[in-house]
């Protein structure tokens, strides 16, 4: 079993990271990936910045000029990391594409309303995103922007490339 906990969104090449881990797994072995997708409220990792603007959710969806004016990348090491993540922008679609390329199968994908590390630190319950569905009548794709963190349980197929035959 392999784990990527809040790591994959920092890597420039998602597919390379996944295929390196895939080659290490035994057939049927599991890979757990947890990350805040880029479109999520704090997906730009702006809370690591110490400035006031870092506390504003969705700030990373602002245009480049506004964003760099509010959070200058040269101000601190944290800010420059926030800017580096702006170039990676790991979204659901990009991640799932890399999963397919790496030849991994998708077993489960729970979406969490709260950032998981924060949830454990504060002892809060797991709030699955499906709870919101009856109240927020939005299309599923739009609903995902409320999701702070997503987990994917992936499995290396017993027969290589077998998931491609059936999907």
């Amino acid at each position: 079993m392999a784990i990527f906990g809040d790591v994959i969104e920092h890597l420039e090449d998602t597919e390379l990271a996944l295929s390196r881990i895939e080659s290490l797994l035994q057939p049927g072995g599991f890979l757990l990936v947890v990350f805040p997708p880029y479109p999520s409220p704090c997906g730009g990792y702006q809370p690591i910045s110490r400035s006031f603007w870092g506390k504003v959710p969705y700030l990373h969806s602002f245009p480049e000029k506004t964003f760099s004016w509010l959070l200058p990348s040269e101000a601190s090491q944290e800010n420059s990391e926030v800017f580096r993540l702006r170039t990676i922008r790991l979204s659901y679609q990009n991640f799932l594409r890399a999963v397919r390329q790496a030849g991994l199968g998708l077993k489960a994908e729970p979406h969490s309303l709260l950032w998981l590390a924060l949830r454990y630190r504060l002892g809060l319950p797991f709030v699955p995103l499906v709870f919101l569905a009856p109240f927020v009548r939005l299309r599923a794709g739009l609903l995902l922007i409320f999701c702070a963190e997503v987990g994917y349980l992936l499995q290396k197929p017993f027969i290589p490339n077998s998931h491609r035959l059936y999907s």
Partner: peptide, 18 residues
Amino acid sequence: MRVIAVGCAEAGVLAAFL
């Protein structure tokens, strides 16, 4: 079960697995 954690920091998650 054998576990590998990439970017494990202080390896708290691995300790839980052990």
